[in-house]
């Protein structure tokens, strides 16, 4: 029986006059890959940030791995350890090498001995194919390499779920592929993932479930085949048509 790794119940979030989330609920099961799509400004990133409480929702509850992170006295820092997050603009620690970036969470948060942390960090860099770049600083890496280090950094913490917030949107087109490859590999290995992206190829190929969000609500949710080929709502089809047209040319070039 599958168990929900992430459960979100009736999330609301308002910034000033703008209501960004208007009651969003969803569940993600173990080893599931959920792709969230939708026009910009519809609360996709806010939703992700509410899951590890980087943004505190005005209303609603969130459970991670059975523990409620929104509970009044929840140990938020401890629960966050189990939620890996990958950002659009990488947010690698600029004063640390690739290795240091992966190690710092292990030594400071998990209190792992340095030698052990170093070995695990090298292993994680190996996983994303960057073991040979361990001693380089972020500024010496390409965008794609930075994002792969960021993935390794999150993996090092041994998360139960990985959140990807438009992980390829800041990348030059020729660097997107290497990041998507790493993400596909993770999915194959059974990692639970929630991915906000415009990469429709990835969504079609890898995700088990797609969510189309607009204006702070989930419009449609279902298997990728349904959203792509048999959308229940005209808005879904219209958006997917537009996004596929925008991004499709590059996908065709890649194939």
């Amino acid at each position: 029986m599958s168990q929900a790794i992430v459960r979100v119940e009736d999330l609301h979030k308002t910034y000033g006059a703008a209501e960004v989330l208007k009651g969003v609920s969803l569940e993600v099961d173990e080893a599931e890959v959920m792709v969230i799509i939708g026009p910009s400004g519809t609360g996709k990133s806010t939703l992700l940030r509410c899951i590890n409480l980087l943004t505190r929702p005005d209303r609603g509850r969130v459970w991670v791995d059975g523990e409620e992170i929104t509970a009044p006295h929840a140990d938020v820092d401890r629960i966050r350890e189990r939620v890996g997050m990958v950002f659009q603009d990488f947010n690698l620690f600029n004063h640390l090498t690739a290795l240091g970036n992966v190690m710092v969470g292990l030594t400071k948060v998990k209190r792992m001995p340095r030698q052990e942390a170093r070995e695990l960090a090298l292993f994680e860099l190996q996983r994303v194919g960057l073991r040979d770049k361990a001693d380089l600083y972020p500024s010496q890496l390409s965008g794609g390499q930075k994002q792969r280090v960021a993935i390794a950094r999150a993996l090092g913490m041994d998360p139960r779920v990985m959140l990807f917030d438009e992980p390829t949107s800041a990348l030059d087109p020729e660097l997107i592929g290497e990041v998507l490859e790493v993400m596909k590999k993770l999915a194959r290995e059974g990692m639970t993932m929630i991915v906000v992206t415009h990469e429709m190829g990835f969504a079609r190929e890898v995700s088990n479930r797609m969510v189309f969000m607009e204006h702070g609500v989930i419009v449609e949710e279902g298997p990728p085949a349904q959203l792509f080929y048999n959308p229940q709502y005209p808005r879904t089809g219209a958006f997917l048509g537009k996004i596929t047209e925008l991004y499709g040319r590059r996908e065709r070039e890649e194939e």
Partner: peptide, 30 residues
Amino acid sequence: IGAGQMMAARAMGMTRLQAIVTIVLPQALR
């Protein structure tokens, strides 16, 4: 030092103080 540094540090489970001491200050002091 961009807000993203603090966000990334908190996201991996660092406390605010840990993030300030191990992530923000080493960069800011330089």
